[in-house]
Design a protein around this nucleic acid. Structure first.
Lengths: 344, 344
DNA sequence: GGCCGTCTTTGAAATGTTTCAGTGACAGTA
DNA sequence: TACTGTCACTGAAACATTTCAAAGACGGCC
């Protein structure tokens, strides 16, 4: 008898007058059990309020019904959108999702990974602090399916999903050039981030291929990709002598762009007339800004969904091959770069 | 021998030349095993790369080392801040955290809860679609520790953590009155949300206690608490005849306020001179807006942390008593309501 | 030498599920 | 009647850990 205990298959079996195995069959291969017994077992289950114990199932099965996403920065909505995409895919596969946040700290990341290993998750999606960190190799060594999100890792050592950041940089700056800007700032940092390097590289590439003077693409480094750093960059921009001051800024992400926008408007500048701004990511708040932000869109949810599918393939398909999926970013033009009355 | 398999306690025991029980003791009560054997076992563990199997531990222990948060709306950063607070508390207690998102849909919520039940999570934190939903009673009936976040549920049937929304409404409108506004709009909805009702109630309460005409507190209902609805409300506001048009708006949350701000500025209004705006929650983006938003702050992380502590108390303390924790909101005044040159 | 107490270590049971070889029962066929 | 095959169900083993009573080792003391 169950006294307070939550009922187990055994209790259900007793109540329905069948064996353990039959109850299990009702849950896992209903087609092999006769309609009459199945019904009887199902009634017993609902009468007892039976709920499958996932730990026991997993212990026996050797594998859990769980995925995990270790995100890089919980204060950036971009990552939550990615997580949302992952969750949808997990839902489709009837899996649960652990969400962890490393907050850009490698030690925290390691702690999370260790816990996830103990949980025997089916796969790990991660936007790592450092794609080359040894604790990531550890995962591959153990054979845990892993997908890097929004970063790439050399040598096909695992799957990854990202956007073509170089291209993103190109289309942003190309757009500004088309709008007639001849002096443009690139705002972003630290350079240790692959994204920042590549977006800058793309910007420079197109700038020079348009025959512009490299000097006219001003690099304003920041210490992080945050709203506060965007404001600071705005102040530095305002401090430049008028002749050298860019009329447009391309920010390495939307948080910087929002900070820059706020600072500029507060200082009495008109956007886009005095300063045009392009962001990157196209988070919801870019479109919601007082002056809606032009931004290079990443397919955020799609990124997450694709990553989840890759990790599931690695987990279930024996001839899985690692892939480096690369999505194409897309410029979304809004008011912050609207064509101005050209006075050259 | 382990061929590819991930090593178990048994393998460690064999490698170290001790029994299973001793290995377990090394992990769980190191003080009872002699220094020499402990060291030997630890070496074996690290040589084999042993990682505890959490499912097996949990199966035997009967309880998992896992918490869960079911959030209401993943597009609102407010809930992610709450989640962040929960995660910090979970981390302190060495627990993992499942994060789910019901997206305001009751069916999804039920699906998530069912899965969490199967996982035998230690406790569930939830911001429910409907605090009176029967699947929540189900949880209490089963004895799963549960805490309602940012809502209250009658009858002390479980713990809850929230902010005093009536007070929040009062301080917001009181602030606007102090700034000299004599016609104020309340923007929010649907009224089925407890928060909306209470914030409105607080607004009305203080308005009347200041001796103002109830007619001068205009209620503009919305269909949801989103940026888009905020814009729509802005259009409706602009459509009012000048004499009846409020000079200030109190929005039921920051997303509405951001939408309203965007629409207003786009329409050429000056904020705060033509329209003052107060939001609610004080999410990061409120401070980051082009015109920094005045907002009623909820201690978002603190809310999550407190909720996690309550659920842990319920899970571990036999004489746990349900509590309804209520935090005090606080007005954060910024430019969107800055004192204007008074022309009465 | 026998007894006692302390400190370590052991071995077996128990947790809830899934799987799989095996057992009956029953109908159809020779 | 005996054989074959199909269908529905059973029973026991296995998964990796924790717990706990019991056993063993060792030294001190009478």
């Amino acid at each position: 008898m169950l006294n307070g205990r939550t009922p187990s298959v055994k209790d259900v079996a007793a109540a329905a007058g069948v064996s353990l195995g039959t109850v299990s069959n009702v849950m896992n291969r209903p087609e092999v059990v006769s309609a009459r017994t199945r019904e009887r077992v199902e009634r017993a289950m609902s009468e007892l309020g039976f709920v499958r114990n996932e730990s026991a199932r997993q212990l026996r099965a050797g594998t859990s019904r769980t995925l995990a996403y270790v995100m890089l920065d919980g204060t950036n909505p971009f990552f939550h959108d990615v997580a949302q995409g992952i969750e949808l895919a997990a839902e489709d596969a009837d899996l649960s999702l652990f969400i962890c946040n490393s907050n850009s700290r490698s030690a925290r990341e390691a702690v999370h990974l260790d816990r996830l290993l103990q949980q025997r998750v089916q796969g790990i999606l991660i936007t790592p602090v450092d794609p080359a960190a040894p604790h990531l190799d550890e995962l591959t060594r153990r054979g845990v399916p892993m997908v890097i999100v929004d970063r790439v890792r050399g040598a096909d050592s695992c799957c990854s999903v990202a956007v073509d950041d170089v291209l993103g940089g190109r289309i942003a700056v190309e757009h500004l050039a088309e709008q007639g800007h001849t002096r443009v700032a690139f705002i972003g940092g630290p350079e240790s981030l692959g994204q920042v390097r590549e977006r800058l590289a793309g910007a420079r590439e197109i700038w020079e291929s348009l025959g512009r003077d490299p000097e006219d693409l001003v690099y304003l480094p920041t210490e992080a990709l945050t709203v506060a750093e965007g404001r600071t960059a705005g102040e530095r921009l305002a401090g430049l002598p008028t002749r050298r001051r860019p009329t447009a800024a391309f920010c390495a992400n939307d948080l910087l762009a929002l900070g820059l926008l706020q600072q500029s408007i507060g200082a009495g500048l008109r956007v886009p007339d005095d300063l045009a701004i392009v962001g990157f990511d196209d988070i919801e708040f870019a479109a919601a800004a007082a002056v809606p932000l032009t931004s290079v869109r990443q397919p955020r949810q799609e990124l997450g969904r694709a990553a989840a599918q890759l990790v599931l393939d690695e987990a279930t398909n024996p001839d899985h091959r690692h892939q480096q999926l690369q999505f194409t970013p897309e410029l979304v033009a809004r008011a912050s770069t609207a064509n101005r009355a050209r006075v050259l």
